[in-house]
Every structure is written in structure tokens, then in C-alpha cells.
Write a protein that binds this DNA or RNA. Structure first.
Lengths: 198, 198
DNA sequence: AGTGCTTCTTATCAAATGTCAATGCACATG
DNA sequence: CATGTGCATTGACATTTGATAAGAAGCACT
């Protein structure tokens, strides 16, 4: 199976050469995931990180009442993982499943170490990814504690226009921390505003 | 000035030897920060990360209406930074100030590189810190989108009992994403519950 | 002790969001 | 075509949280 996205990712974001990519391919694995199929369930140790070659994944937690809290989506070129679980080899409290038929590349710490071995600069690139992830999470927390549902929704639309078309609305509501009904009302209010001003 | 906490941190969490610590000390700096004094303001590039030797720091953002959204506290042995700004040398959107007279150790990417030079295992330790930070942020997001103010408060009390005594309540409210008045109500309700059940 | 400042609490009312129930719609499947 | 299923919307109502204002307690400073 050809993996143009992952290969490109290693070259562009990891600083590898095509030859180095060839050297590390034996250390990764590809998998096809059916719609609604799980890659991780709470209680399991998350053995790999998942790079999305095509499709969409989501990561979520269940609260005490059984409600899903969606923490992250990943489309093409995105990475999902319970990094804590992978890194520390502890049981995860999260679920990861596919919300489209999806092709993923699985890689673990051994793979990362292997890449770092063939390309000494990779750890810095890797750190960059982590730093970016942290920055993104800060922004998310900031919106969650300081912005209304409406503002959060507008932010989401702007940042993830692609997801709007591929993900059911109730999942976006979960990601935003509101109910599907509330999101529906927010959208209605925004539509009314736009109508007035145009 | 002696820095037992930072030294200990480098040894315990960074895997350095006492001798290696001595080698890298020339590359860091110590500063005393008065109560309410700023270490970073929005618009500036965050040139350093701050390790708290003693005291308390907070990191916050201002939203459009000028309301503070507190993203993080750091007490002894904690690190605060706009990592994104430090790493990518971009202007920050955050503020960092002291809420007690505080002694901080300032270190930048050059320091990290220096430490990595004297101890080749340090990058892995550093990655561990980042992974932990990400894990913590996931937990935080999860609570913000899925738990009530009451649950978030209880979580906070449990995780940061020390902060309860050192940080004014309205800052904790900000950290939890609610108003001081709401927090006061939550506390009142909890007190009433405890009274009934005892 | 007096003064001003900040924090915390309380009360009241308003706004935002959640809950529950019903409906309509699109789509897949028999 | 008929039917079932999941999703989005809407309305009525409840609950939570915010906004505003007022007051009490603690604390620093004079």
C-alpha cells in the first residue's frame, strides 16, 4: 500500500530524506479501519500513535454518566494518540475510533527511536510537534474557560472548515462542550444575524 | 544564590549528575520577582521559560472584554512559559505575573541545547515532561467540556490542595472557567451537602 | 483606631445552556 | 415502496451560570 501522506509528513515535518524514510518503513505498520471501529478503548494501553493517511478519527472520554466528551479529531495528516499511555505504557482512559473508513499508520516509541537513529535532527522536529500541540491545547482551554458557545463555534468553523462537512453536528457539539440542541440554537442565531446584516 | 529546587529538578527529572548541573549553570539566570510584577506581557516574545524556585506564578490571557482567563499556576518546582512563543520566537498572547514574591530560574532554548550537549539522555527526559504536560491538558479539556463547575472545583481541590491556600478564590474561579460568584455558590452548596451527610 | 482596599459572600434578576419530548428529514435497507 | 434509524431542529420548561449591586470581614497602611 502506498502512503504518500505519511511519507510526505516524515520528509516535510520530520526533516527526513526519501532514503531515510525507506530505512524506517520496516518499523511501522498500516491498518485499515472500518467506520465505527475502535483503535483504542479505555483500560487498554495505547500501544501506538495513529497517523491518518485517509479518513477521520476521533478521541473521546466517557464521563460518569456515560456521556462522550470528544477531545480531538484527526483527518488526513493528523495524528491521534493517548500520548501519555503510549509513552508511559499505562492504561488509557480514552477511546479512539473511526468515523469514516480510515487508513492509519501505526507507530510506537521504537519507531520514533529508530527515526531518531537514522536522522539525528528528528528529536528536535518531534519536540516542535509537541510544542505545537501544547500551544493548540492552550488555545482550546482558553476558549473553553473564557468564550461563549457562539465564539467557540465560530472559532471551530474557522479553524476546521473541512471537519464541518465530514463530522456530524452532535460530535462537534461534544467537542465544543455543549449539547447538540445548544449548537443548533447557536447556528440558528448566527443565521438570523447574517440575514439581518445582509 | 542557592537553588536547591532547580538543581534537584535537573538531577531528578532531567537525569543529570551534580557535575553536569555545575557545567550548565552558567547558561541560566535567576531573578527575583515582586508580587504582581510581570515576567511576560502579550505582544512580547517570551524569551525564557520560568522555573519557580519559590513563590507562585500565573499565566493568563485577556479576552476581548478584558477578562482574565487563567490558564496555569506554578508553585515551587513548577515551570511556566509560553512554550510556543519561546520555541518559535513569536509574540505571545499571554501574560505571566507573580502572585507572591517569587524567585525564578530563567532558561531558554540555548540552555536546553546546552543541557542536551552535556547529557545525551536529556532530550528524552524533556520529551517526557512535554508528554506529561499534554496529558494534563487533555484531562483539563475533558473536565471543561464534560463536567459541571462543582466537579471541576472538587478536582481542583484534590489536585492542588496547596494552591487553595495561596491563591485568591477569584483566580481559582477564573482557572475553572466560572465567575467568583459561581464558585462561592458551589462552595456553599458543597458545605451544605457535607453538613447534611454528617 | 481609622481609612481604604481587596476578597468573599449574598441576593436578585437576566441570560445562557441543559433536559425532555416531538417532529421532520435524509438515507439505508428490506 | 415501506419502514426503520440516526440526525437536526424546535418548543416548553428547568437548571446553571452570569451580571449587578450591596454588604461584611480581613488586612495593610497611616
Amino acid at each position: 500500500m502506498s502512503l504518500p501522506n505519511f511519507t510526505n509528513f516524515l520528509i516535510e515535518k520530520g526533516g527526513l530524506t526519501a532514503e531515510e524514510v525507506r530505512q524506517v518503513t520496516p518499523f511501522m505498520r498500516t491498518e485499515t479501519v472500518a467506520n465505527n471501529a475502535f483503535l483504542l478503548k479505555a483500560g487498554e494501553v495505547c500501544s501506538h500513535s495513529f497517523f491518518v493517511e485517509s479518513g477521520v478519527l476521533r478521541l473521546y472520554a466517557l464521563n460518569e454518566e456515560g456521556k462522550e466528551n470528544i477531545l480531538q479529531f484527526a483527518t488526513e495528516n493528523g495524528i491521534v494518540s493517548d500520548r501519555g499511555s503510549v509513552f508511559f505504557q499505562e492504561p488509557s482512559t480514552y477511546y479512539i475510533d473511526a468515523i469514516e473508513p480510515t487508513v492509519v499508520v501505526l507507530f510506537d516509541e521504537a519507531f520514533v527511536n529508530e527515526v531518531a537513529k537514522v536522522n539525528s535532527g528528528f528529536r528536535v522536529h518531534n519536540e516542535k510537534l509537541l510544542q505545537n500541540h501544547i500551544r493548540h491545547l492552550y488555545k482550546r482551554v482558553s476558549l473553553l474557560i473564557g468564550a461563549s458557545a457562539k465564539v467557540r463555534y465560530l472559532e471551530f468553523v474557522q479553524r476546521h472548515p473541512d471537519l464541518m462537512l465530514r463530522v456530524p453536528q452532535w460530535m462537534i457539539a461534544s467537542y465544543l462542550g455543549i449539547t447538540p440542541e445548544s449548537l443548533s440554537r447557536v447556528r440558528k442565531a448566527l443565521a438570523a444575524e447574517n440575514f439581518k446584516s445582509n
